[in-house]
Design a protein around this nucleic acid. Structure first.
Lengths: 256, 256
DNA sequence: CGTCGTCTTGACAAGTATCAAGGCTGGTGG
DNA sequence: CCACCAGCCTTGATACTTGTCAAGACGACG
């Protein structure tokens, strides 16, 4: 029912339960107890199909969930149907949690592909109610949330001040960078199982123009893009085009 | 040195120290002690001139400040000089605080006009370290931060999916709405002491195109705009054009 | 084999940027 | 007091970017 290629395409590749541990341990030193808490949460994962609703607008942000595999997004729609995707939710991401008391979701989230998701209520309690018990997790979650915000500003920058060509270069570098963090980028080759319509909705472009711009990037030998897979061929050139800088300023864990 | 008109233009109008109390008490019931804490903070305000730097990129977000009068913004600049303003900081806003531990500013902030600002370290301690002591302030600050995020998504929506005409209609409604909250909108007439270049940088447009779009709005009798003052003439028409909805979903204080 | 969704292409229209110039206004200095 | 200057606003002409419409190609799937 589900061969190796399909798993790859859906982002269900590689050591699924590890992505979150791998990611969080880059932001803070996790104790063995913290790692096993994460592993226990991940062991209880479930799958949802593409299009499934991940988070409702106005839903309380006190039940974090771990995206273990697959792609989702946060978005909003104008009343005439135009859609803007605010950010992608990738494997290793946490969604459904805010550090602010009584916060609610300002936008809905849906699954763009089939996704593997773990409820992480235990993580929410640790972060919100008892920060002392799991300091590593708390610090890592804060870092994840900060990075989310930073990527969001990058998105606003792209959409507000960059043209289609620059936006796409920037997006591919962002995705590549984020997937590398969780070990899902194999030498610049990443799985990006999105339709061009989805990418267009994220970049604030029409599908037709997105398509033409993609082909320009291909023609110039900067990327490959087919079958839901992207390969970054000239990262330095792309970075120059996109004026790309990663948001990971300092703030790495002090101890190894 | 400073006549009434100039004060108006600079956003230094009206009962300056009250804006923060007026705003926060809409989001949570403040105890008398909490109100006097705010009043004490506001009493220690100082002024900075236009262009002054309010917050440095990567600065720790643990020292909240109250904007009592004047306009600021958060922004970032591409290496070739293109600037994107992410959001405006208006009277009654709080900046420099994050609810996440160890957070740093993902973007710098500057003053766009002369501003009156109060350091509010006491507020930061209450929110981050001792939430039990000032529950009303803590709740109100959380609400303020949530609204900031919601306005930011509105901004992304505007810039990503709306044309210049819709963007401007939406912006004027946002500003009007936010200033009403602090009592600085007099029947749709608001002080908006920004150059067109600044507005263009916020809306992701060129100055020339912004100017033409402004004139279209004027010509159609939807707004007046001159001398740093805007008057919303047809709020309902503007709201229909902009598909405007306020982010204040529910979450009002329970008790009056 | 037909259908559906997606990708691709062309032709054209609309939206937005750029360049350049002139006008207005408030402030400055002689 | 006046002339000048600088910053900002406005306008026109033009070019570039992006969107829309329409049609065909391709591939997955029932």
């Amino acid at each position: 029912m589900e061969n190796q290629d399909l798993r790859q395409f859906d982002g269900h590749a590689a050591p699924v339960p590890d992505v979150v541990i791998r990611r969080l341990s880059q932001y803070a030193r996790l104790s063995p107890a913290e790692e096993s808490l994460l592993a226990a949460l991940a062991a209880n994962a479930h799958e949802v199909s593409a299009g499934a609703h991940l988070l409702a607008e106005n839903e309380a942000l006190n039940r974090p969930r771990l995206m273990l595999a697959g792609w989702g997004c946060r978005f909003r729609t104008l009343s005439d149907g135009r859609r803007q995707i605010f950010e992608f939710i990738l494997p290793g991401d946490i969604y459904g949690l805010s550090h602010r008391p009584a916060a609610t979701a300002p936008a809905a989230a849906i699954a763009l592909t089939r996704c593997t998701i773990a409820e992480a209520d235990g993580l929410g309690e640790a972060v919100l109610d008892a920060p002392g018990t799991h300091p590593g997790l708390v610090a890592a979650c804060a870092k994840v949330a900060s990075l989310d915000e930073a990527w969001m500003l990058n998105q606003l920058m792209r959409v507000g001040r960059q043209n289609a060509y620059e936006r796409l270069a920037h997006l591919f570098l962002e995705i590549s960078h984020r997937l590398e963090t969780v070990g899902l980028a194999d030498d610049g080759r990443i799985s990006m199982p999105l339709t061009q319509e989805i990418i267009a909705d994220a970049m604030g472009l029409s599908v037709v123009h997105l398509n033409r711009t993609l082909q320009q990037l291909r023609r110039e030998g900067l990327i490959e893009f087919k079958n839901g897979t992207v390969k970054i061929l000239k990262p330095d050139t792309l970075a120059a085009i996109a004026d790309f800088r990663t948001p990971e300023v300092a703030a790495r864990p002090t101890a190894h």
